[in-house]
């Protein structure tokens, strides 16, 4: 095992140190570890290149010189290999440490920790005293992050099965644009290639494995794309006036734009976009909440109540 590791590291060093493209034969004769028949060396080299690419190391192919021969050459450009964030301060490293620490125990914990090791290798000490003592926590048990984030940065297409409102399993092909949290859940937004429109998908509603296309740069993300807008304000928000019992309905109270004291009850106003969602949350509170306006919201609540009485009465 360690011979393979030594060879990969020696190959990386050789390709990084060279100022020009190295041909395969130059690599085989100078980099330690390539042994056996020409076919064996060839196979070893192909596998090594794939392994390095899987580590995110870009190997450039080039150096064709028609005047001599047309053998391809290889090198790793230092500007692609190494982290280049320009000058960085101790305060910035401290902020990034805080950002990485937020993943403790969550999906991208390992990635956050390895990112932190790289940042701490830049030779700038983290200045934790320059930032306030705050502690953050990202909550997500999701494991599809790795695949989705890679697909977004490489502009590759995702294929997955998605649960519809009626629990049908639908097959989707999506050009992913973005991921974001919204109301405590993770969402993926992107162009649904079959339905030819922008859609959002809640990650925990994806069934089974996600497949990614092998290609890259298959689409472009529109420059003005804003995932928060696509999750939030699809429609113009409506305004509702509700009576809520004193000391009750705290979930609605925290959303209130205004509160008027009416004795036993308080009158609040709030904004909503999704009628179904707001009816559900009004009914959660039973007789502690009463809709004053608008009429269509009152009607929706009354309709739901009629069904409830019909089913249970």
């Amino acid at each position: 095992m360690s011979r393979k590791i030594e060879r990969l590291i020696n190959l990386t060093i050789a390709l990084l140190a060279t100022k020009r493209y190295l041909t395969k034969n130059e690599i085989f004769s100078s980099v330690e570890g390539y042994e056996g028949s020409p076919e064996t060396k060839e196979r070893m080299f192909e596998r090594d290149k794939d392994d390095l690419r899987n580590l995110g190391i870009q190997i450039e192919v080039g150096g064709f010189d028609p005047a001599f021969d047309d053998e391809a050459g290889y090198r790793i450009k230092s500007e692609n290999y190494s982290l280049n964030l320009g000058t960085i301060t101790g305060t910035e490293i401290a902020l990034l440490s805080l950002a990485a620490e937020a993943w403790r125990g969550a999906a991208l914990d390992d990635a956050a920790q390895s990112a932190l090791l790289k940042l701490r290798s830049m030779g700038v000490e983290s200045d934790m005293d320059s930032i306030p003592n705050i502690s953050l926590q990202i909550r997500t048990p999701q494991t599809n992050f790795e695949m989705i984030s890679q697909a977004i940065s490489q502009r590759g297409v995702l294929k997955f099965s998605y649960l519809s409102k009626d629990l049908e399993v639908q097959h989707r092909s999506v050009a992913p644009y973005a991921i974001a949290t919204h109301r405590g859940f993770w969402y993926l937004a992107g162009m649904d290639l079959d339905r030819k429109s922008l859609r959002t998908f809640r990650l925990d509603r994806i069934e089974g494995e996600i497949e990614t296309s092998r290609g890259s740069n298959e689409y472009a993300i529109p420059e003005d794309f804003d995932i928060l807008k696509s999750l939030e304000a699809i429609r113009k928000p409506e305004r509702a006036t509700l009576d809520i019992r004193k000391g009750k309905a705290h979930l609605l109270r925290v959303q209130a734009l205004s509160i008027i004291d009416k004795g036993e009850w308080d009158e609040i106003t709030l904004e909503y976009q999704d009628l179904t969602y707001v009816v559900d949350s009004i009914l959660w509170h039973g007789d502690d909440v009463f809709v004053v306006a608008p009429d269509n919201l009152r009607e929706a609540v009354v309709d739901a109540l009629k069904v409830l009485v019909g089913l249970h009465g």
């Binding site: 230092s78 991208l108 990112a115 705050i134």
Partner: peptide, 29 residues
């Protein structure tokens, strides 16, 4: 010297830091 600069961040590492920084931005006093 050849390997002495830290490697570039992978896309997953970048996303981890970006999402973490979002929370930092929202939580600063």
């Amino acid at each position: 010297e050849t390997l002495s600069k830290p490697r570039n961040l992978t896309s997953e590492e970048s996303i981890a830091l970006l999402l973490g920084l979002d929370l930092v931005v929202q939580s600063l006093p």
